[in-house]
């Protein structure tokens, strides 16, 4: 088992949303390459507490890349250098001895800073609350096999549904746009037969809620390459097309 030596962490510390932020350096003399980056932070934090200093605040939970809680800019990249992985899945073996690693919070207007490396991503919940569901009251559902769904359709829906809601797409976007997140939520439901009745209403409501909180998409594609679940920006095209359709249909209704 090899060990990395002499790692320097440059960590963003900020007491609160209005506080003055600063970088703080921490030395890690030795760390096993089997350790994850967050396990290294755990060790640094334990040491800080023992020294009487405040631990670095960062969001994390499942540590297996599915809950979407972790969120770090690692050397300027959302979720760091490992492709298709969340921050908690970045292991020290991707770094080398003597490296300096820079850790910052998500930086986006839609995600106000809470403290240190933690941000507030509740705007994502507002987008889902606006329409990210299929209305199906408990108990009234027909037999599950009543509507066959072609496998490619179901697979495409699942590809989009794999989104973990971490916000890397927003953090990576130069405009702080949430188009990849919103379009993934939309594609998950809009592609399925069950999702058709509310397709237009859903698209309009979610897109407009998104616009209230986040910047506009200009097709940079940074979101796709930062996404830990490698969700395709094709979903954004589908969202734009559905949005246009729903607006057009509504205008027709207005004109009547």
């Amino acid at each position: 088992m090899s060990v990395l030596t002499n790692i320097t962490l440059k960590v963003w510390r900020q007491d609160g949303p209005d506080g003055q932020g600063r970088f703080e350096s921490h030395q890690v003399p030795e760390i096993s390459e089997e350790a994850s980056l967050l396990e290294m932070l755990d060790i640094v934090n334990e040491r800080l507490v023992e020294e009487g200093r405040e631990a670095i605040v960062f969001d994390h939970d499942c540590r297996e890349g599915i809950c979407g809680t972790c969120s770090l800019m690692i050397d300027g990249q959302a979720h760091g250098p490992t492709k298709g992985a969340a921050t908690c899945q970045v292991h020290m073996r991707v770094f080398s001895s003597g490296d300096e690693i820079v850790l910052e919070p998500w930086r986006a207007d839609g995600f106000p800073l809470v403290k240190d490396l933690m941000v507030d991503r509740s705007a994502f919940d507002r987008i889902v609350e606006a329409g990210g569901f299929i209305t199906s009251p408990t108990g009234g559902a027909p037999d599950a096999n009543l509507i066959p769904i072609p496998k490619p359709v179901s697979d495409a829906s699942m590809d989009a549904a794999a989104c973990i809601g971490c916000g890397a797409c927003v953090a990576a976007c130069p405009n702080g746009a949430a188009s990849l997140f919103t379009s993934a939520k939309l594609a998950h439901l809009n592609l399925l037969p069950q999702g058709q009745s509310e397709r237009e209403k859903r698209t309009e409501a979610m897109v407009e809620m998104m616009d209230d909180h986040f910047g506009s998409c200009t097709n940079h594609g940074e979101c796709e390459s930062a996404c830990p679940k490698e969700i395709s920006i094709d979903n954004i095209a589908l969202m734009n097309s559905d949005y246009l359709t729903s607006k057009f249909k509504n205008r027709k209704k207005l004109a009547r």
Binding site: S136, A144, N145, P148, K151, S154, Q194
Partner: peptide, 22 residues
């Protein structure tokens, strides 16, 4: 059995066979 019906109705993309059934 009701759970599966409910979850499919609300859009859970369960794995399917090529014929479209679960």
């Amino acid at each position: 059995v009701d759970i599966i019906d409910q979850m499919v109705a609300q859009g859970v993309p369960f794995a399917r066979e090529y014929g479209g059934l679960l």
